[in-house]
Amino acid sequence: MNRLPLHEDLYLIAHDQSGKPLIHQSSMALGLAGAVLLELAVSGRVTVADGRVTVSRPPAGDLPVSLADGDVRLLVKKAADGLYDRTREALVASGVLVRVSRRRLGMLPYTRYQLADIASVVRASSGVRSAVEGWKPPDARCAALCGLVAVLRLEAELYLDQPANRLVGRLREIASAAPPVVGELVAVVDTLVGEAAVAVYR
């Protein structure tokens, strides 16, 4: 199986096996948007500097977001709109997720999107686990995923026998040691997720 896009790996890590999201959907959408931009940045298709995004080369294939030069914070926020649903549908279309309809208490219908194969999420998180444990040096893409897992506080889904705060610190260290664009974009997502969390309680 070919490697999934970075934002799809993040989606899988952010759900349990039954398809239940592990974090608030607004935070996850911002993380997914950051993941799309991070993958484009580490592949050299966009440049991010001083809070601005510049499209260097037209991205190959279909993108799940609209892309244009502009302010990086605004671009991430705009890209997050509807991205959660588009990511889920792409994973269903590729057979990674399966749509399952059930009834709660025998009456209320609901739909979950479950893993077709647990191997998908194992593959999604294997690079992050390897980087944390020192088994394999992380590339920029892996470091980006480490940073996003830390920002979204998904460290428990790595199933590593380390205290949560130490593990989050290690994930952030890996991201900060990557090319500067990784740290810059992870910091943007971190700020936006924090702002979204505060907005929920206003």
Score class of each variant (00 low, 15 high):
residue 116 A to F: 02
residue 116 A to L: 06
residue 117 D to Q: 12
residue 118 I to P: 15
residue 120 S to H: 15
residue 120 S to Y: 14
residue 120 S to N: 11
residue 120 S to R: 06
residue 121 V to P: 01
residue 122 V to Q: 05
residue 124 A to D: 06
residue 125 S to E: 04
residue 125 S to L: 06
residue 126 S to V: 08
residue 126 S to T: 04
residue 126 S to E: 08
residue 126 S to C: 04
residue 127 G to N: 04
residue 128 V to F: 05
residue 128 V to K: 00
residue 129 R to D: 03
residue 129 R to Y: 06
residue 129 R to L: 05
residue 130 S to Y: 04
residue 130 S to R: 10
residue 131 A to L: 07
residue 133 E to H: 08
residue 133 E to S: 12
residue 134 G to L: 12
residue 134 G to V: 11
residue 134 G to I: 11
residue 136 K to C: 09
residue 136 K to T: 15
residue 136 K to S: 14
residue 137 P to V: 10
residue 137 P to W: 09
residue 137 P to H: 11
residue 138 P to A: 09
residue 138 P to I: 03
residue 140 A to I: 13
residue 141 R to H: 12
residue 141 R to D: 08
residue 142 C to P: 02
residue 142 C to Q: 08
residue 142 C to D: 07
residue 143 A to Y: 05
residue 147 G to F: 01
residue 147 G to T: 04
residue 147 G to R: 01
residue 147 G to N: 03
residue 147 G to V: 01
residue 148 L to F: 06
residue 148 L to Q: 03
residue 148 L to Y: 02
residue 148 L to A: 03
residue 149 V to I: 14
residue 149 V to G: 00
residue 150 A to C: 09
residue 152 L to N: 00
residue 152 L to E: 00
residue 152 L to H: 02
residue 152 L to R: 01
residue 153 R to G: 05
residue 153 R to M: 07
residue 154 L to T: 00
residue 155 E to D: 11
residue 155 E to I: 09
residue 155 E to K: 07
residue 156 A to V: 13
residue 156 A to Y: 14
residue 157 E to P: 01
residue 157 E to Q: 15
residue 157 E to C: 05
residue 157 E to W: 10
residue 159 Y to P: 00
residue 159 Y to S: 02
residue 160 L to I: 13
residue 161 D to L: 09
residue 161 D to F: 13
residue 161 D to Q: 08
residue 161 D to T: 08
residue 161 D to H: 12
residue 161 D to M: 09
residue 161 D to C: 04
residue 161 D to N: 11
residue 162 Q to N: 02
residue 162 Q to P: 00
residue 162 Q to K: 13
residue 162 Q to C: 04
residue 163 P to Q: 10
residue 163 P to I: 13
residue 163 P to N: 12
residue 164 A to D: 08
residue 165 N to C: 14
residue 165 N to Q: 15
residue 167 L to G: 02
residue 168 V to G: 03
residue 168 V to L: 12
residue 169 G to M: 11
residue 170 R to W: 04
residue 170 R to G: 07
residue 170 R to P: 04
residue 170 R to M: 10
residue 170 R to T: 06
residue 171 L to N: 00
residue 171 L to T: 00
residue 171 L to W: 02
residue 172 R to K: 15
residue 172 R to H: 13
residue 172 R to F: 10
residue 172 R to T: 13
residue 173 E to P: 11
residue 173 E to Q: 15
residue 173 E to Y: 06
residue 173 E to W: 05
residue 174 I to S: 04
residue 175 A to W: 03
residue 175 A to C: 14
residue 176 S to G: 13
residue 176 S to V: 11
